[in-house]
Write a protein that binds this DNA or RNA. Structure first.
Length: 575
RNA sequence: AGGGCGGUGGCCAAGCGGUAAGGCACAGGUCUUUGGAACCUGCAUGCGUAGGUUCGAAUCCUACCCGCCCUGCCA
């Protein structure tokens, strides 16, 4: 199964293809297959802690671990690292499962929990005590820290380090039986307090924690630490390649020590760099702050880089997978530009999103020479990129709305839209020419634009070779449906909010204009029953997705991403 | 400072001793009933720096510089 797969660059459908076939992880796996290290098996896992929602950084990790397993015809597990009952909740377990499924991965029956292994882990603890490789330590947390030493100075042995096997057995049993208060004792590995790798300075394996675990009936009052849980969980599941964040690189010697000392099956751990994205923050703790302090409206706020947020924003799982595959895998620190993500969603939606017309900031246009009561149904193609998308009919009448920005009384050079005396095309309809403008006497605001139309240009075309000044989208005033449109901008004003003010509060860089709500939008009537979650291209504007806040009498759209706008770029350049 | 890991164009990233892939971004252009899309062209005499080995070095060696991670009974 590990044949190279060709990747066509324009066909996003091919995005079920996973990461580039030459990355260093695949090379390592190829070597292991060649040397028959794991009998040719490839078995990976994704091990989230259920203490928050998954974000785009997790998507990268999932695409790497699960995607590679898929490509090699291997297996992959979903395992919840639930070794800390006080920060973990079942709500998160459900959310994580929903998001992984949505991304398009099926772990079948291989759904595991570190808590499944608590009994085994406890036995491992006892085994290490028997081998005189673990001891119960009575040092307080503060003392433990002091004894550990610093980056440059070695630690000191705990005074409890040389307890007898019997005493350790009794004490450890007592810990499990609930005889000691929280924080009073730990079980520690007996390794080397002088190791330059701090993880090897007698790390804590078990702490006393009188807290119920949501998945376990038995009342545990000791819980294994992540370091004592993770590697053995991979071992128990027969994982061949434990792919993880580079931050665990210096934990690898510890995991290997546990595996060797315990004499159990050793997976191979390979580390890669985590994802960083411009103009946002990733990382559970920071996202939790945003949610809990109310800077956004919940974990699925469309401004968040969470998978739930991206989904609500209108991102497709295909686009996210495509993004993850495009950015590659390496060990170098990286900061991916948000434009890269936007590219992936645009190219997916360009191919698949039906085109519709909606006017975000409407201004009325009256076509004076169009028969007053007449309504014509005009045919419009649903997607020029997809010949199977078909057509629909759109009502046209004497009064329509166009985008306020599509008219200028005194247009600058290169303004290729409506202006006094100019003729433009109404997409799918007619050519119209601006004859006059009516303004509000007090404010000077344009309230109505009067135009004439050319009946010979039905469908928006004439055979006389006439060139018009542009093409506008529009919506029939009488037939339009009202809509609310939520426009999103980046959540932060700084490219790197976390590094923008050395050590200072990143929260200050939240973009006060990250959400703009438009309440007077007018959409073509075909959108009345658009289902929540459905995605469209609003012609000439961008891609939009129906928000679940939509009700029978109020349509709500989220802007997923605007269309590339070369006019905006010209304007920006002229400033 | 001790340890670990990194440093290839604005952002990613191939490259594994034979003379710098690709993508995003950007800049031009073609086409166009979306200023969209598509298509074409351009974009590193240079691979953190300095030496060395070699016919030949981003790739090997030496030294140095810079960045990230590690002193939770979090994961």
């Amino acid at each position: 199964m590990n044949q190279p797969h060709s990747k066509s660059k324009s066909d996003i459908q091919a995005s079920t293809h996973n990461t580039s076939d030459t990355n260093f992880i695949r090379q390592a796996i190829d070597e292991d297959i060649a040397s028959n290290r794991f009998d040719g098996r490839v078995h990976t896992r994704f091990p989230p802690e259920p203490s928050g929602y998954l974000h785009i950084g997790h998507a990268k990790a999932i695409c790497i671990s699960f995607g590679i397993a898929e490509d090699y015809g291997g297996l992959y597990n979903l395992r919840f690292d639930d070794s800390n009952p006080i920060t973990e909740e079942s709500e998160y377990v459900e959310a994580i499962k929903r998001d992984v499924k949505w991304l398009g991965f099926d772990w079948e029956d291989r759904e595991f929990y570190a808590s499944d292994y608590f009994e085994t882990l406890y036995e491992y603890g006892i085994k290490l005590i028997r081998k005189e490789k673990a001891y119960v330590c009575d040092l307080t947390p503060e003392e433990t820290r002091t004894y550990r030493g610093t980056l440059t100075t070695p630690g000191k042995n705990s005074p409890y380090r040389d307890r007898s096997v019997e005493e350790n057995m009794t004490l450890f049993q007592g810990m499990r039986n609930g005889e000691f208060p929280d924080g009073s004792r730990t079980l520690r590995a007996k390794i080397d307090m002088t190791s330059p790798n701090l993880n090897m300075r007698d790390p804590v394996m078990y702490r006393v924690l009188h807290a119920p675990h949501s998945r376990i009936d038995e009342n545990w009052c000791i819980y294994p630490t992540y370091d004592f849980t993770h590697g053995q969980s991979d071992s128990i599941e027969g994982i061949t390649h434990s792919l993880c964040d580079v931050q665990f690189e210096d934990h690898r010697p510890l995991y290997d020590w546990f595996l060797e000392t315990l004499e159990i099956y050793p997976p191979r751990q390979i580390e890669f760099a985590r994802l960083n994205l411009t103009y946002t923050v990733l990382g559970k703790r920071k996202l939790r702050v945003l949610v809990q302090e109310g800077h956004v409206n919940g974990w699925d706020d469309p401004r968040l880089p969470t998978l739930a947020g991206l989904r609500r924003r209108g991102y497709t799982p295909e686009a996210i997978r495509d993004f993850c595959n495009r950015i590659g895998v390496s060990k170098a620190d990286n900061l991916i530009e948000i434009a890269q993500l936007e590219y992936s969603i645009r190219s997916d939606l360009n191919l698949h999103a039906p085109r519709v017309m909606a006017v975000l900031n409407p201004v009325k246009v009256v076509i004076d020479n169009y028969p007053e009561a007449q309504v014509e149904m005009l045919e419009a193609d649903n997607n020029p990129e997809d010949e199977n998308a078909g057509t629909r009919e759109i009502p046209f009448s004497r009064e329509i709305y166009i985008e306020r920005d599509d008219f200028m009384e005194d247009p600058p050079r290169k303004f290729y839209r409506l202006a006094p005396g100019r003729e433009v095309r109404l997409k799918h309809a007619y050519y119209i020419t601006c004859e006059s403008v009516i303004k509000d006497e007090n404010t000077g605001e344009i309230v109505e634009i009067h135009c004439s139309y050319d009946p010979e240009t039905r469908g928006g075309w004439s055979d006389d070779g006439r060139r018009v000044q542009g093409t506008l989208h529009w919506v029939s005033a009488e037939h339009a449906v009202d809509a609310e449109v939520r426009l999103y901008d980046s959540l932060f004003t700084e490219r790197e909010p976390e590094n923008a003010a050395d050590g200072a509060d990143w929260i200050q860089f939240i973009n006060p204009n990250s959400l703009e709500v438009l309440n007077t939008c007018k959409a073509e009537p075909s959108l009345v029953d658009a289902a929540a979650g459905s995605r469209f291209q609003f012609l000439r504007i961008g891609y939009f997705c129906v928000d679940p806040d939509t009700t029978l009498d109020r349509l709500v759209f989220n802007r997923t991403v605007p269309l590339r706008d070369s006019w905006a770029r010209i304007q920006k350049g002229q400033k």
